[in-house]
Simulated assay, not measured.
Amino acid sequence: MEQKTFDPDGVGVDNGTYFGLPFEPETAALVLISAPWDVTVSYGAGTAYAPDALIEASTQLDYYDPLAPDAWRRGIATADIDYTLQEESQRLRTDAARVIEHLEGGGCPEDDYAVRKIRRVNEGCRALNANIAAQARHWLERGKTVGLVGGDHSTPYSLIRALGERYERFGILHVDAHCDLRDAYEGFEFSHASIMFNVLRDVGAVQRIVQVGVRDYSRREAETAAASGRVVLFDDMALAGAEFRGETWDAQCRRIVEELPQEVYVSFDIDGLDPADCPHTGTPVNGGLSFNKAVWLLDTLVRSGRRIIGFDLVEVCPAREERTDAVTGARMLWKLCGQTLKSNEKPNEK
């Protein structure tokens, strides 16, 4: 479909792109790359199928967003999805699941049974990282803003590294139920539970990681956060306590945003939301942000004058029996796209 024939007030078009939009990556301001991968998930699997589910669900939303009206007109394009990643994910998931079962039964990662399987998984994850790095660099070199649709939370690692090669410093706004600060969780170096540990280790340009809504993390992760000097926790109970004492969510959002530098990457794990909005995500946790609170936080970030240089949306796990997860994921993806484009507007474009 050509852009000149596209009717934003018409029926959603199933053309294989996110939101059914007609933009080509070469001419769009924002390019979405996809990572259908969930090898190391430690509880519920299925996020590898999120990109296709979000493409399907996204054609059912309306384009007008009062917080970022017409931002989409600058172009949101869908890069070709590499489905060999999904095939490899399915193959390696068997090995990872057997390792996890072995560990849960009292085994350890150094046992002969686990060592070879862990090695295969780690090699596969490195190949995934190389694939995403190549895709990210390709579009960044062409002046595009890049968003990633996962897949599990391990998948944006190489996008963040690619941004670290282009920016002297930036911060990460990390919305999640978990800190993801575990060192090689379950023996997997690039585990979904290790993404922020790996970023701290490997991406020196990341000046600050501001974690919002976290509510299920280990003592060691808390100690890692405290010792790093680069991590700020706004855990879920602390946010709830401030609200109970009368602080408005708007004031809390302003406190959160003040911890971030001018350039910001947003890493949005859907399980940062109330599990009522994402009941099938791999590791749901009671509590969390409402959808509107999360959107208000993103809007506060952009209204502060900060610029979103990239983002990811991960851990959406579509379910066959009902569509809540995909519907929530598609609409959060739309908000992320709109706020990102709005934050990158030049004065003469407003």
Score class of each variant (00 low, 15 high):
Arg230Met: 07
Cys253Asn: 13
Ile256Leu: 04
Gly282Pro: 02
Ala276Tyr: 13
Val231Gln: 08
Pro284Thr: 08
Cys278Ala: 15
Ala294Met: 08
Asp299Pro: 00
Gln252Glu: 02
Ser228Asp: 07
Ile270His: 03
Val232Arg: 15
Pro261Gly: 03
Leu297Lys: 04
Gly272Gln: 02
Ala226Phe: 07
Asp274His: 09
Phe234Val: 04
Ala251Trp: 04
Gly288Trp: 05
Ala225Phe: 07
Thr248Asn: 04
Lys293Val: 03
Ala276Gly: 12
Leu298Ser: 05
Val231Ile: 15
Glu258Trp: 01
Gln262His: 05
Pro261Met: 00
Arg230Asn: 03
Val232Gln: 14
Thr300Met: 01
Ala225Arg: 09
Leu301Gln: 02
Lys293Asn: 12
Ala294Leu: 07
Leu301Tyr: 04
Pro261Tyr: 02
Gly241His: 10
Leu297Cys: 08
Ile256Cys: 00
Cys253His: 09
Ser228Arg: 09
Phe244His: 13
Arg254Ala: 14
Pro275Gln: 04
Arg230His: 09
Ala238Ser: 14
Pro279Gly: 05
Ser267His: 12
Ala251Asn: 08
Phe268Met: 04
Ala240Gln: 14
Pro275Phe: 05
Thr224Arg: 15
Gly287Asn: 08
Ser267Asn: 10
Ile270Tyr: 01
Cys278Ser: 15
Ile270Val: 11
Arg230Leu: 06
Val231Tyr: 05
Val302Asn: 00
Phe234Pro: 02
Ser267Pro: 00
Glu263Lys: 10
Arg245Val: 11
Val285Gln: 13
Ser304Pro: 00
Thr300Phe: 02
Val285Asp: 04
Leu239Gly: 06
Leu289Ile: 10
Val232His: 11
Asp299Met: 01
Glu243Met: 14
Asp271Gln: 00
Arg303Thr: 01
Ser228Glu: 06
Asp299Asn: 13
Asp269Trp: 03
Trp249Arg: 14
Asp250Glu: 15
Pro275Ile: 07
Glu243Phe: 09
Val285Arg: 10
Asp235Trp: 13
Val232Gly: 08
